[in-house]
Every structure is written in C-alpha cells, then in structure tokens.
Design a protein around this nucleic acid. Structure first.
Lengths: 213, 213
DNA sequence: GATAACTTGCACAATGCTGTGCAAGTTATT
DNA sequence: AATAACTTGCACAGCATTGTGCAAGTTATC
C-alpha cells in the first residue's frame, strides 16, 4: 500500500503534539510581541529553535499555518449565522469574535507585516463579507446610520471591534463584560446611543453571554 | 565671549535645514513604515545614511527629538482649550488632534516599540489628562454615558480617535470630512447616537471646520 | 578665495535574526 | 531490544541593520 517500497514506520505521536505546541506558542507569543523570534516561540513551546525546522520549512510556513487555522476557527464560529435583523447579525458577529479573541488578535497582528499580509486579508475575507452584508441591509432598512458610506462604515466597525479586543488584552476584562462591550461598541459605531444599544442587547437573548464551550 | 579661545565660525545655515529635513523625512517615512531603516529615512531627506550621525548621535536620539517636538506641537495646539461644556471640550480635542494628524500618528506608531515607548507615553500625558478631565465632568453632569468606568471610557476615546486617524491614512478623506468624523466617533463613544452627535456638532460653531493655518 | 563646516562613500565591527548540515543524543513504536 | 522518528547543540553562511573611523569631496561663510 505504501508509495515507497521500503518498510516505513508510522510517525510518532508526540511529533504532532509538538507541532501543535509550536502553533499554540506562536499564537501566545505573537500576541505579546508581533515580531518575536523563532527562538522565543520555540522556547515558549519548550522546544529548541532547531527543531522548529523539523515541522515547518519556514518561519513563514509556520505563520501561514497559524493564520489559516485561525481563519478556519473564526469561519466555523461564524458559520450559519443568519438572523433576519441585520443589527442582531452584526452584534452576533461581534459576539463570536470575542469568543475567538486570541485567534483574531493574532491574525490582526500578523496581517500588518510582510508577505503574510495579503494571505491573512484573504483568509479574513468571509468575515468582511458578512459584515458588509449586515451593514448594507441595515442601511437599507434604516436601522443603521446612513451619513457614512457603506465601505467606510464597514471598516470602522471592523476596526472598532478589533480595538476592543486589543484593549481587553492590555487591560483584561471579565469575559462577560468584554463580550458585552464589543457588542455595545459595535452598535455604537453603526449609530446607536449607549442606552439604546444596551437595551437592544438586553432585548435579544441570542446576544446573551454563554459560557464558552 | 567664546568659551573656547580659538576663533570659531558660525554653523552653516544649511546644516539646520538638513536636520529639519531629516526630522520631517522621519515623520513621513515612519508613518508609512514604523520600522523603516535610517537608510530609508536619510534617502527621503535627500541625504546619506552616514550624515545622519552628523546631526544625531543615535537612531534613538532622532526618534526622541521627533517625539518631543511632536508632543510640543500637540500640546501647543491643545493649549488654552477650556470650554464649560465637557462634550464640546472633548470634541475640540478631537478636532485639534485631527489638525496634528501626522504628528499624532507618528507618535502612536513609535509609542509601541522599544525604549521610546515610555518617553512617548510621558510626552502624551497632558493630552490624556485633559481627556480624563472632560470625561470626569461629562459623567458627573450626565452628558456622557456612565455604564463604563472613567478609565475604560477614556482609553476607548483615545483609541477611537486614533483609529480614525489611522483609517484616514489608509483611505484618505477630505480634510473637512475627516475632521467631522473624528468628532462624530468621539461623541459616539461617549454615548451619543449618530443624529444627536451630528446635531451637537452642527449646533456649536467652535467645532466648525476652519482651513488649517 | 581661504577655510571651516558639512556631506559622502567606503570599509569595518558588532548585533540579531533566519536557515542548513551534521553528529550525537533521546524516545515512541514495533 | 531493535530501530526509526524525533530532538538537540553546535557550527556556519547569509542577510539587514546600526554605529564608527577616515579620507576626499563640496559649499556656505568669513
């Protein structure tokens, strides 16, 4: 059955674990310092820099895998997100992003530098699309401000959500409050005053905080 | 009169110009790429990397001077900013920051890396102080939201203003619109719905756009 | 036009990072 | 217990960057 005729042994189980440990370490370390060295990442994973090259051909390959797996997490978490009310939809997106905060921040950080930028942008494209959709609908039905263009508003929403995630990294918030804050700020950007925004959130159970699985 | 007894000639005028050119170039280049090399900066200034060391002992010295002069610009532009209404005050701060956008962005960018970070933070302290003052007053008199703590709200306001400045760097806005947008977003963060925020701005001449001097 | 002030180019050392080869270990699997 | 799979440490090359010395230019100022 083997492609090669030589008898080959199955890969060791701990190898896969180490690979995963490296990815996890990278996520953690890069959240702290976007330009951390492989040395630092490997150390965090409890491995040597040399052995990184046993799992990834490149620094970039490592980041690439990080980004794609992160994007997959986010995509899955956003999957099947469809609610008639575009406002609820938008708040739900914010809510889900909060649950995937580590991946999102890591990607945002990587998206800035080097050749990974374009790939990261592409990976996050689905998120952007549903954000725009919600905003288009919201502007059409009058539930969202119309003094700003759709494009601009979409970017402001994205960046504001990210802002809250960053903020909560430097000054940690109880998960419950962070979750509420992202939604609150998102609704604020699309035009709502703080009381209205909070009332809206309180009025929709879909937006309630639930302990993360 | 000279400290030294040897006859000494006055420094050449173009030296000062070149020094200024370097600072300007650094501001421009670092806005594009926060980790630009001295080579790049010198080239932008039309000088050679070697001659940078004729004006500054260090890379860090250059940045230090950039930051301090930038902070001075901002401080001056914020000088004598006192209005009874804390909301107007806050919007005025946003307005002034918009006028000093290049300095502000440059400082924000530098504030992230290396040993300059603490100095930059210190240089921007006055700005932070008046922001907090306005927010304290605003929360007291009920004109700003009170569902978020003063500290948190202050940071959100700062970051949101910065967000708009960054946004306008990537997707340029007419000065007039950018100016309005920073104020709009700032008022939004402290609790106002989009119509109320715009009405507020329109109702106060102090917040009108005036061609920059 | 003499000369100090300034710029330049080159060479060089030092640093910190990535990526590779290899020999010697350790450990999971068979 | 044999052995392939994996890790490690070290040495080395390559690259980009900062910072310095120096000799040769250019130019503003006296």
């Amino acid at each position: 059955m083997n492609t090669e005729s030589v008898a080959t042994r199955a890969p060791r189980r701990d190898a896969a674990e180490n690979r995963a440990a490296l990815l996890l370490a990278a996520k953690v370390v890069l959240n702290r310092d976007p330009s951390a060295s492989l040395e630092t990442i490997a150390a965090e994973a409890g491995l040597s820099r040399r052995s990184v090259y046993g799992h990834f051909v490149n620094r970039d390959e490592l980041l690439l895998e990080l980004v794609t797996s992160g994007a997959r997490r986010v995509a899955i978490s956003l999957e099947g997100l469809s609610h008639p009310d575009p406002l609820v939809r938008l708040a739900l997106i914010a809510s889900r992003l909060w649950q995937e905060i580590e991946s999102v921040r890591m990607m945002a950080v990587i998206a800035i530098r080097g050749p990974l930028a374009s790939h990261t942008a592409a990976a996050l494209d689905p998120v952007r699309r549903i954000v725009r959709e919600a905003i288009t609908d919201g502007q059409r039905d009058g539930s969202m401000r119309n003094d700003l263009g759709r494009e601009l508003l979409a970017r402001l929403v994205e960046d504001t959500a990210l802002l809250v995630l960053e903020e909560s990294a430097e000054h940690p918030l109880p998960a419950r409050e962070g979750h509420n804050l992202v939604m609150l700020m998102t609704l604020g950007v699309v035009g709502y005053g703080w009381r209205d925004a909070q009332n809206f959130i309180d009025a929709h159970h879909e937006l309630d905080w639930t302990i993360p699985s």
